[in-house]
Design a binder for these strands. Structure first.
Length: 309
DNA sequence: AAGACGAAAGTGGTTGA
DNA sequence: TCAACAACTTTCGTCTT
């Protein structure tokens, strides 16, 4: 993490302490954790030392993209009637043209619609371009394997986005994805997600609570101090295997709740639960385990006394 | 009155025979 | 394919602040 230039200001709390997290490529506020932007390096990824090297390394054309139905690549065979000079071969071109349209109609028509849907959802969720690309890639493989058949196109798009978020290390909850797809219910998205991952052989790595802490904390407007405390607690908890087998969102929520108590920035269980998309009961269960196994009782008592003063 | 607590019953997914 | 199982949810009554 390094300091960023001082001109930048956090739109959330006005702090000018903007820090950079190079692993995630995020710029975030050092005070409240608000994420200002996801940085992507658009600069040239090679250097040119002489004529020969520059000719070798340079790549022509627009970059491939999964956010266009044809990846920005397709060419079209002209209509036979337009190619007057080669009248003789007219029959051949007619056939080629026919095949082109046949291939186009099946998969491409679907991709046209789904790409529009993907873009719409990505903009609602304000996903970084890289995640959108990943989602497009996943959808494309799913579609070409015929996995969309029997499922709604939307649910597969939603599942692809959910998977892409996790792969890129910026997981969203199913609720959040669901908000961008009002017509779908949460369970269908999860189901489709699992199905697509299984069929495509995408390894589903369980998400870590760490991935959620920053985002949840920002929504709860917790200070950086509390976030650090939460991460510290989480680290201890992980080492003692309190977190294994537990839902990562519940763990993240409980950790933040405890940290908020200790740092005197109390949030109610309800508030934390809503942000994390779990119930108060789950927070209570995790919370109990944390306190028991990490002996946090005294620390909470201390901070309570402090507040009472 | 709001928040925290915990018991009990229900849900959906995983696992192993 | 079915039952057992763990995690989580929903609901609700009770205690605490």
């Amino acid at each position: 993490m390094g300091k960023k230039d001082s001109k930048m200001k956090c739109p959330e709390c006005g702090s000018t302490r903007i820090i950079e997290d190079p692993h995630r490529g995020e710029l975030l506020c050092g005070r409240c954790g608000y994420i200002l932007e996801m940085k992507v390096d658009f600069s040239q990824d090679w250097r040119e030392f002489d004529q020969r090297l520059s000719a070798e390394k340079r790549r022509a054309g627009a970059p491939l993209t999964y956010t266009k139905p044809d990846m920005g690549l397709s060419t079209k065979v002209g209509k036979a009637s337009e190619i007057e000079k080669i009248q003789k071969r007219r029959g051949v071109y007619k056939r080629i043209e026919k095949w082109q349209s046949r291939i186009y109609t099946a998969l491409e028509r679907n991709l046209k619609l789904s790409t529009a849907e993907l873009r719409r959802a990505a903009s609602i969720l304000s996903l970084p371009k890289s995640v959108e690309e990943e989602a497009g890639k996943i959808y494309r493989s799913a579609a070409s394997k015929g996995l969309v058949r029997g499922r709604s196109m939307e649910s597969v798009v939603a599942g692809s986005i959910y998977a892409a978020c996790r792969i890129c290390g910026v997981p969203r909850t199913l609720e959040e994805i669901g908000k961008a797809f009002p017509s779908l219910d949460k369970k269908d998205i999860g189901k489709t997600y699992r199905f697509v991952c299984r069929e495509l052989g995408i390894r589903i790595l369980p998400t870590s609570p760490v991935d959620y802490i920053n985002r949840f904390a920002a929504e709860l407007k917790l200070s950086q101090r509390t976030v650090s405390k939460a991460l510290e607690i989480l680290d201890k908890a992980t080492k003692r295997e309190i977190t294994s087998g537990r839902g990562p969102m519940g763990v993240a929520a409980a950790t933040l709740y405890v940290a908020s108590l200790i740092c005197g920035e109390k949030r109610t269980q309800r508030e934390v639960a809503d942000v994390a998309g779990v119930t108060e009961v789950t927070i209570r269960n995790r919370y109990k385990e944390l306190i028991e196994k990490l002996n946090l009782e005294e620390e909470i008592k201390k901070s309570k006394e402090k507040i009472a003063q």
